[in-house]
Amino acid sequence: MSWTLTAALSAAVLPPLALALALPAAPAAAQAPARQTASFETDRAGILAMAGNYKVRFDMQEATAWRGDYTPIDRKISGGYESVRVIEDSGRRIVLQHLLVVTIDGAAHVIKHWRQDWEYEPARVLGYDGQGAWTWKDVPEAQRKGAWSQTVWQVDDSPRYAGWGIWETVGGVRRWRSSWTWRPLARRDAVRGPVYDRYLSINRHQPTPTGWVHWQDNTKMGLFAGKLEPVVQEYVLNTYTRFDGYEVKAADDYWAATKGYWAAVRAEWDRVGAAKKGIRVAEEAQAGTVISARLLELADAVQAGKTAEAAAIAEARKLIDGATR
């Protein structure tokens, strides 16, 4: 598989940022009764239920302009097939890896997609600060009880965004809602060079009878005369519908061949995050981090038997350490 295809589906560009902004308090912080009655096992079941095989619909729409000189872009709808696998479950921590399966010239290709890590009652999360930087944000102690954090990672396992919140049932619908989270631009926006350069977002994950949905409320923000101002509101609804009618085996074969390599890559990002008190790495619009393409290319070489896993891991560690500061 060409790394250019993989890189094209990575998401982020790192804009300049004058201010380091901490994650605000969770919207559900005041809901003590819901927090007190939340079932740990029910929460776990909701997270684990996101694993499976899916037909995915991505529906993105800029709706409300917050500046008089801005015209919202046209709605964009796309889709694909995605396998979501549980790659870690230690009780209070669950890790889900997404694998996108696409068909090119009649053959199935796998693109290692995003990853979501869930942690119960976290003390801190790795939040986006802008300017190629993610730093540790303390979760206020009063907001930890019954809460789960969700940290989302990019295709090369570099960080993207993190927030926390509680699982609750309202009106008969189960959902998890995040705190306010800062996020770098997704590739779909970054490649256009828009006037906004980051998102301030709330995310919701909700099980459905046929799968689950990921709903995003994104305020697209820009720097104007050194001050952050809202530009436009975007609503994103990603719908995951259980479906086995695609090349599921291709996703599982890819993961079986590369999971050792990617475990080492995750461990190296974790080491850097701890040793350097966060992660600072340059990014580019087309491919995510400046090392993303090579990290993904190494995985493809391992799967194809062209590069030994140990050699690929050694190069990946060197790349990550050298690119971060």
Results as ranks from 00 to 15, higher is better:
109 H>Q: 14
61 Q>L: 10
265 V>K: 05
125 V>E: 05
304 A>S: 15
182 W>V: 02
320 I>G: 01
70 Y>I: 03
269 W>D: 02
321 D>C: 07
63 A>S: 04
313 I>H: 01
131 Q>F: 07
188 R>N: 07
119 E>H: 13
166 I>T: 03
161 Y>R: 08
151 T>A: 08
267 A>P: 04
251 A>P: 00
107 A>C: 10
10 S>N: 05
74 D>M: 06
58 F>W: 15
194 P>F: 11
231 V>Q: 08
100 L>S: 11
235 Y>A: 11
301 A>N: 09
119 E>D: 14
232 V>P: 12
107 A>W: 06
9 L>V: 09
231 V>I: 07
239 T>G: 06
139 V>G: 07
82 E>K: 08
149 S>H: 08
64 T>A: 14
142 A>F: 05
103 T>D: 10
299 A>N: 04
215 W>K: 03
182 W>Y: 12
157 D>H: 14
146 G>R: 00
35 R>T: 06
229 E>G: 03
26 A>S: 15
223 L>P: 03
283 E>H: 13
153 W>T: 11
122 P>E: 03
206 Q>H: 15
292 S>Y: 00
90 S>M: 05
297 E>V: 03
121 E>W: 09
166 I>F: 02
249 K>V: 06
290 V>T: 14
104 I>E: 08
153 W>N: 11
217 D>M: 03
298 L>C: 11
45 A>H: 12
251 A>H: 00
173 V>K: 12
300 D>F: 02
147 A>V: 10
121 E>C: 06
56 V>D: 03
15 P>K: 05
150 Q>V: 14
56 V>I: 11
223 L>M: 08
146 G>E: 00
284 E>C: 01
176 W>E: 01
274 A>W: 02
180 W>C: 12
30 A>M: 12
220 K>N: 11
15 P>E: 07
193 G>S: 05
282 A>I: 09
278 G>S: 09
194 P>Q: 10
266 R>E: 08
247 E>A: 15
119 E>A: 14
125 V>C: 07
14 L>S: 13
261 Y>G: 01
100 L>W: 11
274 A>E: 08
46 G>R: 13
148 W>I: 09
149 S>F: 02
90 S>Y: 00
185 L>S: 03
322 G>L: 00
68 G>M: 06
292 S>V: 06
212 W>D: 01
196 Y>E: 00
103 T>A: 12
215 W>V: 07
289 T>M: 05
105 D>G: 12
263 A>F: 01
295 L>R: 05
221 M>L: 15
23 L>T: 14
177 R>Y: 15
72 P>Q: 11
60 M>T: 03
124 R>M: 07
24 P>Q: 15
115 R>N: 01
